Amino acid sequence: MPEAPAIPATHAPRPRRSRRALAPWLFLAPGLAMFLIYVIIPIFQSMWVSFYDWDGLSDATWVGMANYVELMDDEAFYVSLKNNVIWLVLYMLAVPAGLMIALFLNQTVRGIRIYKSLFFFPFVISQVVVGLIFSWFYAPDFGLLYKLIEGLTGQSVAILADERLVTYGIIAAGLWPQIAYCMILYLTGLNAVAPDQIEAARLDGAKGWKMLWYVVLPQLRPATFIAIVVTVIGALRSFDLVSIMTSGGPFGSSRVLSYYMYEQALSEYGYRMGYGAAIAVVLFGIMMIFISGFIWKMWRDEKGVR
């Protein structure tokens, strides 16, 4: 009686292969469901609400593009948008600053663990605590910076009460933990730098800035991408520090789009959910433009390398 042909060892039975293909999706399913429910669906709901005049309780009234038309004539919206641009430009200082600190902390010198702990500290405290610390730092009469400026110049400067300086004072507070975050990303990236490429570059005579630019930075490209994206997101949302330190003041001069959205939609000044949703949609669009640009550039660079 002829024997049945043996199944090659290299090919698993079809049911087993199907289970293997299905297993990753089963593990991803809870995360994908949470992402869909709490991120994707609310984005489209916000877009839909932005076409209504609604206070959050009574019946909503369809107004079409009226909320967006009103934004075009809203001076407070343009002040908030300008402040977000300032945040975005100055917040980018966190990326090179984090890189420089990471390069310093990546050395093996005496006491380096103490330095790492000091630089890591801003990352583990909440933004509320950061806001309170800097509010006291800038405070008139007893703030350290206030006393220092008064002692050096003989003039008193209340940064959080000055319309020209308040935004820069809040950004300085935000940069403190943001630099620490970028530093952690770069420290992780430096641990993955190939030592054989470093040695080969040294044998070729590369050192200093040439070593950094041609050997180290190309290998830190993924860390740089994440640092830029996270910094852009942090600059554009920037709600918590504004709320804690100034509540948008003085006279609305430190508002950003996220805080202005909150004022219009959820504070006693507004309860205009539709108008607040329109501001949120504009902010989301700006954020997507920047992030999509970074993703496209990174994809193009990776394709060029291959």
Rank of each mutant, 00 (worst) to 15 (best):
W87A: 13
V124M: 07
K82V: 08
G64W: 06
L71R: 14
V129G: 03
I114H: 05
E75N: 12
A66M: 11
F119M: 02
K82H: 15
D74N: 13
I112E: 00
S126T: 14
L99K: 00
L103V: 04
F104G: 07
I114N: 08
Y115N: 01
I86E: 08
L105I: 03
V129C: 14
F119I: 04
G56F: 05
A76G: 07
K116C: 03
G111Q: 01
S80M: 07
L99G: 00
M65E: 15
E70D: 11
M92I: 15
G111F: 01
E70N: 12
L88M: 08
I125D: 04
D53H: 06
P122E: 01
G98V: 11
L99V: 01
I133Y: 02
L118H: 05
V124N: 07
L103N: 04
N83A: 03
G111N: 05
Y91Q: 09
W136F: 08
V129I: 13
W54I: 07
A76L: 12
A66T: 15
S135A: 08
F51T: 07
E70C: 15
V89D: 07
I86A: 10
A102D: 01
A66E: 09
V95P: 00
Q107D: 10
L81Q: 09
I133P: 00
G111K: 02
Q127C: 11
V95T: 05
D59R: 08
Y52A: 10
D74S: 14
V69L: 07
D74A: 10
V124F: 07
L103W: 10
F51P: 08
R110I: 12
V109R: 12
F77D: 04
F104E: 01
D59H: 12
V130H: 04
L81P: 03
I112N: 01
T61A: 14
P122V: 11
R110D: 06
L90H: 06
I101S: 00
M65T: 13
L105R: 00
I112D: 00
M92W: 05
F120A: 03
G131I: 01
R113D: 04
L57D: 06
V109L: 06
L81C: 14
A94N: 05
I133L: 14
V130P: 01
P122T: 02
W62I: 05
Y115F: 07
G131N: 10
I101A: 01
I101K: 00
G64F: 11
N106L: 03
V85R: 09
M65W: 11
S117G: 07
L93D: 02
A94P: 03
G131W: 04
G56C: 13
V95C: 12
R110V: 10
S58A: 08
T61I: 15
F104D: 03
G131M: 01
N106F: 04
A76Q: 09
F51K: 08
V79P: 10
A60M: 04
I114K: 10
D59Q: 13
A102C: 08
D59F: 14
L132W: 06
D74E: 07
K82Y: 09
M100H: 10
D74G: 04
L90P: 12
L105Y: 01
W54G: 02
W87Y: 14
